[in-house]
Amino acid sequence: MSTQLKKGVLELVVLSKMEEKNRYGYDIYQEISQHMIISESTIYPILRKIVKEGLCETYLKESTEGPPRKYFRLTKKGKEKLLFLRQDWLKFQRVVNLMIRGEKYE
């Protein structure tokens, strides 16, 4: 899959993963990398961006096995943004599909 395509939707994917449950950075990466090949180093700056825009907040969670991890939790603003992005994506997907098919069947 083209990296350029992936980058465009990465924010949406990350927000979706956070919506499922509160996760830590590496967890989010592992979740996504099961489905698409992606560099860890592109995920972290996106997480930073999301935090900065106030779409999610972080908290430290103690663990019995090791040092505490930084967890990400969606904010209300983040949930709204996710909803918006999802609609955007569906529209976009439809338009792109239309255009791709149009070319093929003409």
Binding site: G25, L47, G66
Partner: peptide, 13 residues
């Protein structure tokens, strides 16, 4: 910080 945590995940967990 992310990578430090990444090291923790790898070594401790």
């Amino acid at each position: 910080g992310f990578y430090e945590e990444r090291f923790h995940s790898g070594t401790a967990y």
